[in-house]
Amino acid sequence: MVLETFAFALIGLVVGAGALARFPEYFAGRALTVSTAVVAALLGGRLTGYVLDEGGAVVQFALSALASALLVSVLARPDRVRRGSHRRHA
Rank of each mutant, 00 (worst) to 15 (best):
A37Q: 02
V39P: 06
A19Q: 13
G84E: 15
L3C: 08
F23R: 09
F6N: 02
S64M: 04
R88P: 00
H89R: 12
F8S: 00
R30K: 13
L10H: 01
M1Y: 15
V51Y: 13
R87Q: 07
F23H: 11
A37T: 07
A40E: 01
V39K: 05
A67L: 14
E54C: 04
E4L: 15
V38T: 06
G18V: 11
T5N: 10
G12H: 02
V2F: 13
M1D: 12
R87W: 07
V34E: 00
A7Q: 05
A9R: 03
Y50H: 10
V14L: 15
I11H: 01
F27Y: 14
L32M: 11
F6L: 15
S35I: 10
A7G: 06
A7P: 03
L71A: 10
L71S: 09
A62T: 05
A41M: 05
V74S: 04
Q60C: 04
L20T: 03
V72I: 09
V72K: 07
A17K: 03
G44P: 14
L47V: 11
F6Y: 05
I11F: 01
A65Y: 00
P78Q: 09
D53Y: 11
R80H: 08
Q60T: 04
H86V: 10
L75Y: 03
S35L: 13
A17D: 03
R46M: 10
T33I: 09
R83S: 12
A67K: 01
S73M: 12
A40S: 13
G49F: 14
L10Y: 01
L43S: 08
S35V: 10
A21V: 07
R88E: 07
V15D: 02
G18A: 08
G16M: 09
A62N: 00
S64V: 01
A67V: 10
L3H: 06
A31T: 14
V15Q: 02
F27M: 03
L42V: 08
L3K: 13
L20F: 09
T33D: 03
G56S: 06
L70P: 10
G56H: 07
V74L: 14
V39N: 03
R77E: 08
L52Y: 05
T5R: 06
A31H: 08
L75V: 06
F6D: 02
Y26V: 03
T33G: 04
S64N: 05
G55D: 12
V14Q: 01
I11P: 07
P78T: 11
Q60L: 05
R80S: 08
G18M: 10
Y26N: 09
G18P: 10
A28D: 12
M1V: 10
G55S: 15
A90R: 14
V38M: 09
A90Y: 15
S64Q: 00
T5A: 13
V59M: 01
L66P: 05
L10N: 04
R88Q: 07
I11A: 04
F27R: 04
V81K: 05
Y50Q: 09
E25F: 14
V34H: 01
V2T: 15
T36Y: 08
F23I: 00
A65L: 09
A21T: 06
Y26H: 12
A62G: 08
G45P: 13
D53H: 14
S73L: 11
V74F: 14
I11V: 14
L13T: 03
A17F: 15
